[in-house]
Design a protein around this nucleic acid. Sequence first.
DNA 1: CGTGGAATTTACCAAGTGGTCAAAATTTAT
DNA 2: ATAAATTTTGACCACTTGGTAAATTCCACG
Lengths: 207, 207
Amino acid sequence: MTSKPPKRSTRIQQRNRDLIMEAALEVFSLYGFRGSTLDQIAERSGLSKPNLLYYFKGKEEIHRLLIDRLLETWLDPLREISAEGEPASEIRKYINRKLEMARDYPRESRLFANEMLQGAPHIQEELYDLKVLLDEKVVLVRNWIKAGKLADIDPYHLFFSIWATTQHYADFDAQVQAVLDEGPAREHRFETAAQFLDKLFTGGLAP
Amino acid sequence: MTSKPPKRSTRIQQRNRDLIMEAALEVFSLYGFRGSTLDQIAERSGLSKPNLLYYFKGKEEIHRLLIDRLLETWLDPLREISAEGEPASEIRKYINRKLEMARDYPRESRLFANEMLQGAPHIQEELYDLKVLLDEKVVLVRNWIKAGKLADIDPYHLFFSIWATTQHYADFDAQVQAVLDEGPAREHRFETAAQFLDKLFTGGLAP
DNA sequence: CGTGGAATTTACCAAGTGGTCAAAATTTAT
DNA sequence: ATAAATTTTGACCACTTGGTAAATTCCACG
């Protein structure tokens, strides 16, 4: 009955868990769950395979923890959309934050995309949480529309289009880079994208 | 030196090759190249694994043929954008065709997405062909802008946004369906999407 | 028919896979 | 320093993987 002391994790545990998660993110985001191997993760992390499995129960657990960690921060920008702000600027802010995330965390975006492509087998619950939060914001947008502050568009598809256009720069980066000439066009693609999306949505959402 | 007669393929060959390609599309589009197995493809096609390999040299060849076939038709809508037509309606037509393809050929879209997520390792050449064609259309759009028929936006990113928003409904269908309430909203998602995208781009591209 | 090529199956690899286990090495606390 | 706890490794294992070879069945044709 005596519960053992909290057993706080040591420095080594912290470091190695981080190393593994980092390597796993790299691998899973590239090949998806089924296409990734523990050997790849082991090599990238600099640890041996049995050593990985000393820190995590198995491949599934590593993947699940990655997805959990991802979803935690993924929805932050959506949460921050505020009913108080000016509609146009709230949406612009949201687009910009999403675009920054695509730029700064492309692997997380690809991990998510991989999961979606496979039909989201591991995150049905989390998708429900997303729905609840989204429904809230949809009401908010509907009110903006009713108040004549936004064009009369379908809010769900508005969010779809924002997700699609911003995450595209992470998920399809290979295509984006292949198509843009090397040099400034390629290098400043995120700035140009920000400008373009700003114009597109500003014009497209004006009442 | 005597070249053998053309050796036209039999009915059985035709049928089985089709069966295999169909099954392979299903599997590859879900799991990507590394995550898919010949056994899965064999099972789905109703043939035995050695029988698959009687018709194709190996996993790589099947995948490559699928990608080749995909790219052949993938660019058709882009090719059809005409300098003669009205800018706004040409772009609207393009968006609608792309959306129809996402609806009718979601597996092809996901196959492409999988390839992109992994950095497009197998289709660097084809991406160059895409770039050539796209550059052509970019000039066209630039002329429309110069003529004052379109807002002054970056044409490359315009195409990125069209690709992203339309393919989203195939690639992220799991998310789209999870978020939309079951019933008409979910069932008519492509019609609603068409309406939304029409408004978004019409408004966003008006000069 | 029956026979020669086409199609299919059976029985296999060798390499790669996720995972286990006990022993060895190392770190930590006393 | 040394015992205890933690960390790491090497040797494995059962199963899956892409692929092969030979034997067998099927089938169109004279």
